[in-house]
Design a protein around this nucleic acid. Structure first.
Length: 405
DNA sequence: TTTCCACAGGAATAAAGGGCGA
DNA sequence: TCGCCCTTTATTCCTGTGGAAA
């Protein structure tokens, strides 16, 4: 048998899927208060009445989406049992971030594949009309969940959906909106008319503490792993790392999964704390790499310009100097040189991805206000992830010692 | 207290690309 | 085919910012 043939591996997992993002367990651990409040808010649906619009908020990985999937699944099943027609739809606004796109996505998600419409080309008013018709054809209680609602660039769709009955757009369907956000200040950014509609009920999901994270991990461990394959300190260690990441259960579960994967690749009988530590480093590196590979070429050149300063210990560097280096690199590579305005916007994006740190300084009348930028990830990791870009635009002398062998 | 500096960043606009329907 | 209506991305213009210096 060749080493490249595939055969099922029976260690250490029982059901690896139980640690993946889209898995919904039979019980949600450590979220009793939130579930109780959320359940009460959705209850009117089963009584054939429209639930209030709900706004869920809390940090990443605290169970907002999991709780939503968990309760909507039960609500739909209860609807089937009691003969109540309830439709639900979850849309992630990361990627579907305009009112227009959300409307198109809603239309297409409730239509047969042959009746779907294209993503561009229609007047907005026509898209809304199609959406109301689609909802009225369903003629029931429709619960629409907009996950990562803070990614929406405009709130037109929120206003339209929350006021659809009042504005006589809908005859038979009744819509409840559930907005989910990690951004605690998002509500304040909404226009007052939208805020009052969409935040009829707000539910705060608090961060998991280390004890709650242990319970979550224990529950998934019993499904995902075979008996007695985890060393005693694996779960506490994953929970401690998850608690450090502001109580993020997703991170803790990813770490447990990674530790299991490493043990499997190493053909070890037991998953150990060492596997967890190695997994953590790998996950961090993968996250940096994913972030960088998701950038376009211009952003990668900008980031590369910053690494050339980092390589000579010249950071934090003023944005003006960074722009000059970017200009030089892009020009040498025969690429279009974009403006400083573009750079400012995209530096913010790099900061959001955790790749750079930006500080604002002010030297008053002798120097004015300006930004300084520094790399916030290990230089070698960033250079390694930028390898293709570096190859295509040429190596700057300052980073040569940091190129991977 | 006022002025000054050097951007930072919001708003409006342009350009390019793509689908629809007459 | 062409005009319309969207999208995304970048540019231009211009006001705002806030600490140091006068």
């Amino acid at each position: 048998m060749s080493k490249f043939d595939f055969s099922p591996r029976d260690f250490p997992f029982n059901n690896r899927n139980a640690l993946l993002d889209d898995y919904t367990p039979d019980e949600l651990v450590g979220r009793d208060d939130e579930l109780e409040e959320y359940h009460a808010a959705l209850q009117p649906a089963i009584d054939q009445s429209k639930p209030d619009n709900i706004f869920l908020y809390g940090k990443t990985g605290v169970g907002k989406t999991a709780a939503t999937r968990f309760l909507l699944d039960r609500l739909e099943r209860a609807g089937d049992e009691h003969g109540v027609n309830i439709h639900t739809k979850i849309i992630n606004c990361d990627g579907i971030d305009t009112s227009y796109r959300v409307a198109v996505e809603l239309i297409n998600s409730f239509r047969e594949s042959t009746e779907r419409i294209s993503e561009t080309g229609h007047p907005r008013s026509k898209v809304y009309d199609m959406m109301w018709n689609t909802f009225d054809e369903l003629g029931s209680i429709i619960i629409l969940v907009l996950d990562e609602i803070d990614h929406l660039q405009d709130d037109s769709i929120l206003y339209q959906l929350s006021r659809a009955r009042e504005n006589r757009q809908l005859q038979s369907a009744r819509i409840s909106l559930v907005g989910i956000s990690n951004d605690l200040s998002y509500r304040e950014q909404l226009s007052p008319k939208v805020r009052s509609s969409i935040c009829e009920r707000s539910i705060n999901f608090k961060a998991y503490d280390a004890i709650e994270l242990r319970e979550v991990l224990q529950q998934r461990k019993s499904i995902a792993f075979q008996d007695d394959v985890l060393e005693d300190d694996v779960i506490p260690l994953c929970a401690a790392f998850g608690a450090q990441e502001s109580g993020d259960a997703r991170k803790a579960l990813d770490l447990l999964l990674k530790a299991g994967d490493i043990a499997q690749e190493d053909n070890n009988d037991i998953v150990t704390a060492e596997h967890v530590r190695r997994g953590r480093k790998l996950l961090e590196r993968e996250e940096v790499k994913r972030g960088i590979l998701g950038l376009n070429e211009q952003e990668q050149i900008l980031l590369y310009a910053l690494t050339t300063f980092e390589a000579t210990d010249s950071t934090p560097i003023r944005s003006r100097s960074l722009y000059h280096r970017y200009e030089q690199l892009a020009d040498n590579a025969g690429r279009e040189v974009l403006t400083t305005r573009w750079m400012h916007d995209h530096l913010d994006e790099l900061e959001m991805l955790g790749l750079v740190t930006i500080d604002k300084l002010n030297e008053g009348s002798s120097g004015g206000q300006y930004k300084t930028v520094a790399l916030s990830q290990a230089l070698e990791s960033v250079v390694s992830a930028l390898a293709t870009t570096i190859q295509s635009i040429g190596i700057h002398p300052s980073i040569e010692p940091f190129l991977p062998e």
